[in-house]
């Protein structure tokens, strides 16, 4: 652990700031929580590979002073799988948006979870495609307005936590950008977890989702995260079961991690060869 004071300028590529996210976008708060978490863990910047796909969220990789791989839409986890399996000592962190991770990238998401490869997937869930201008995503849910749902959405949404659990992820957690400290602590645990970890962080898109769905500005949307979420198992759920739960849903350290399992394959293959 690292007790020295945190200065985000030690971790970002300052020449690209101010960043390209809209005023009030929650993604910058995720970036802050992630960098604080990495600082507190005392990780060496040369050991971190940040791999992302396409979308607002994916621009995170260009802002951080790690090895950064900005790939193609939806496929970040497959690129990260190549990085991780080829060099298991590296920390693979994959920030994704909800569309990137679960629409075009849904297949890679469930298969990375199934393999239990030691990658940290961060789903920055703002329930909308921001980069392309406000189309609904597989996380929007029914009854929402979007530029491709002028009469409201009829598509059901995924529950990321349930999906990740059933696909085999061995660390699954959820937080929000209102709970930036909690998010930081969950990200730290996810990064240190040996296996596939998923952290869903609810984030606001005031520009498109908020405006289209009359959820107000960034402040009001963050108030929403405060009021509509509770810690796992909170008594408030008895009165209102629709509250979204935050915390760690799965933490399984027994299942073999993929790269370690492959090392055993190499051992076996090499014995047979000699």
């Amino acid at each position: 652990m690292n007790d020295t004071p945190f200065n985000f300028k030690d971790y970002v590529r300052s020449r690209f700031f101010p960043h390209m996210w809209c005023p009030g976008c929650g993604h910058g708060i995720v970036l802050g929580s992630l960098l604080r978490g990495i600082h507190e863990l005392g990780l060496n910047k040369n050991e971190i590979v940040m791999t992302s796909g396409i979308g607002c969220s994916s621009r995170i990789s260009g802002y951080v002073d790690f090895h950064s791989l900005h790939t193609i839409h939806g496929r970040a986890l497959s690129f990260a799988t190549g990085v991780k399996l080829s060099r298991p000592h590296l920390k693979a962190i994959v920030p994704m948006g909800d569309g990137d991770a679960l629409a075009i990238g849904g297949n890679h998401f469930i298969h990375a979870a199934r393999r239990n490869i030691d990658i940290t997937a961060i789903v920055m869930n703002n329930k909308i495609y921001g980069m392309t201008g406000g189309q609904f995503s597989p996380l929007s849910g029914p009854g929402k307005k979007a530029t491709t749902a002028p009469y409201s959405t009829i598509d059901n949404e995924f529950d990321i936590v349930e999906l990740a659990k059933s696909a085999g992820a061995t660390f699954v957690a959820r937080s929000t950008v209102f709970h930036a400290v909690e998010a930081k602590d969950l990200l730290k645990k996810a990064i240190m977890h040996k296996g596939f970890s998923v952290v869903e962080i609810l984030s606001q898109c005031p520009t498109y989702y908020g405006r289209k769905n009359k959820e107000g500005d960034a402040v009001q949307m963050m108030e929403g995260f405060k009021n509509n979420t509770v810690k796992i198992g909170s008594k408030k759920l008895e009165k209102n079961p629709n509250l979204i739960q935050r915390g760690i849903f799965v933490e399984d350290t027994d299942k073999p991690e993929y790269c370690e399992a492959y090392d055993h394959i190499i051992e076996t293959a090499m014995k047979g060869n000699s």
């Binding site: 004071p5 700031f17 101010p18 976008c25 910058g28 802050g32 929580s33």
Partner: peptide, 21 residues
């Protein structure tokens, strides 16, 4: 404020905290 600033634009430096380090 620092934790929730999406722009990483605020840093709060607490001298007491530093002296205690």
């Amino acid at each position: 404020c620092e934790l929730r600033c999406p722009d990483l634009a605020i840093q709060i430096i607490n001298k007491q905290e530093r002296e205690n380090d």
